[in-house]
Amino acid sequence: MVARITAVDDHDPEPSQSKTLRAAWADLVRGFNQHELWLQLGWQDIKQRYRRSVLGPLWITIATGVMALALGLLYSLLFKIPVADFLPHVTVGLIMWGFISGCIKEGSEVFITNEGLIKQLPSALSVHVYRLVWKQTLFLAHNLVIWLILMLIFPRPLGWDILLAIPALALLVINGVWVSMFFGIVATRYRDVSPLLESLTQLLFYVTPIVWMTRTLQDQGGAISSRARIAELNPLYHYMEVIRAPLIGADLPAYHWWIVIGCTVAGTLLALMAMKQWRFRVSYWV
């Protein structure tokens, strides 16, 4: 009981006076300023995961590359799309999906798995979220090696538009923070949320254009073409497009950016509301 009380005092000495958006935002800023801590912890997570492994983190790249190659070749034959067009589409989609699904699934358990640190380490609650997102970003960086190899095998004209991938990746990381924070708090309070998110993430994989293309549906015309517009109701479709299009040299309508920016702002506010209401209770719930 002493440990629990100490943990609450470290995070928020007077919870009743800190249930404001300003205090929630201050937690995010304080956690970010403790970057030396979460950078080191995130890197330590990767080293611990691949301890005594010969290839180490390269296993991440190999697994993603094999999956992309298998799915890319299979579905290019099924959909009758040239491999040179379809394989980069699938590969970049899988790379980005690895980051998104990691933030959702691991984010739902981020506070539960860090129970000991939360109770004993006087730091901002957001430190644990930054640690997780930093680890997922390192995984993403490893997997981008596959994209570089594909660009050498299937060269395509990549102009200055490729620089748009930088702000797109920055938005993806910001979304990873609020997703991990929000689902982390909710899943810590309600433990059934975590397995539910596991199933939901699997479903989202199939309804997001990763191993299929909206262009394929549109080319068929008729009712199928009109149903392709339903894919745009999925926010993850727009997140994929703003990153994938610059990396494979595809056209990118501006409305994708506005939707992603809008979702980022709305999601950040949602996470701040959750922090405002419940962040000082996480130490009790874990």
Rank of each mutant, 00 (worst) to 15 (best):
M1R: 13
V2L: 13
R4N: 13
T6P: 00
D12S: 15
D12V: 06
P13S: 15
P15W: 04
L21S: 10
L21A: 11
R22M: 00
A26C: 07
D27E: 14
R30W: 10
R30A: 10
N33E: 08
N33Q: 10
L41V: 04
L41C: 00
G42I: 05
W43Y: 09
Q44W: 07
D45L: 00
I46P: 12
R49D: 06
Y50R: 08
R52Y: 09
S53Q: 07
S53A: 12
V54E: 05
G65D: 02
V66F: 08
L71E: 02
L74H: 01
S76L: 09
L78A: 11
K80V: 03
K80G: 00
I81P: 08
P82Y: 10
P82T: 11
V83K: 05
V92T: 12
V92R: 12
G98N: 15
G98T: 10
S101T: 09
S108I: 11
S108K: 11
S108R: 10
E109K: 15
V110K: 09
I112A: 13
E115G: 12
K119A: 07
P122Y: 11
S123I: 08
H128E: 02
R131K: 15
K135L: 05
T137V: 09
L138H: 10
F139W: 13
L140P: 08
I146N: 06
L150M: 06
F154V: 01
F154M: 05
R156F: 01
L158Q: 09
G159C: 02
D161N: 08
L163S: 12
L163E: 03
I166C: 07
I166T: 00
P167Q: 09
L169T: 15
A170M: 12
I174R: 07
G176T: 12
V177K: 00
V179I: 15
V186M: 15
V186S: 02
V186R: 06
A187E: 02
L196R: 04
Q202H: 14
L204C: 06
I210G: 03
I210M: 07
W212Y: 14
D219P: 00
Q220G: 00
G222M: 03
G222V: 03
S226N: 06
E232S: 09
L233T: 02
L236E: 02
Y239V: 01
R244C: 08
R244M: 04
L247Y: 07
I248Q: 05
I248N: 05
D251L: 10
L252P: 01
H256M: 06
W257Y: 05
I259D: 03
I259V: 15
V260H: 03
G262C: 02
V265W: 08
L270Y: 03
A271V: 01
A271N: 04
A274T: 07
W278Q: 05
R279W: 04
R279S: 07
Y284T: 11
